[in-house]
């Protein structure tokens, strides 16, 4: 059981990091603070799907980590 959980944890974590990295944020990070364009963002549909996937794996990651920590 523990092994399976560990395995799932690894998978979800790696996918999570990967899915966060392939995001292409409109916001320009810390670099150019105060740029006026941030309110004119139009989210593309791929970005939407990606967001959902990321949220899913984020939840899984948190869940698995918590369970592993309790054990």
């Amino acid at each position: 059981m523990e092994q399976i959980l560990k395995f799932l944890w690894y998978i979800s974590t790696i996918i999570l990091v990967f899915s966060i990295l392939i995001h292409n944020p409109k916001s320009e990070g810390l670099g150019t603070i105060g740029s006026q364009n941030q309110f004119f963002s139009n989210t593309r549909s791929t970005e939407n799907t990606l967001n959902k996937v990321t949220w899913l794996f984020l939840a899984l990651f948190l869940l698995f980590t918590t369970i592993l920590a309790i054990n």
Binding site: T13, L16, V17, I20, S27, G29, Q38, F61, T65
Partner: peptide
């Protein structure tokens, strides 16, 4: 775990900005 955590925080900060 720690790297993923840091990436999550980064993503959350981007979401907040956006």
């Amino acid at each position: 775990a720690l790297t993923a955590g840091s990436m999550i925080i980064m993503w959350l900060s981007e979401l907040i900005t956006e």
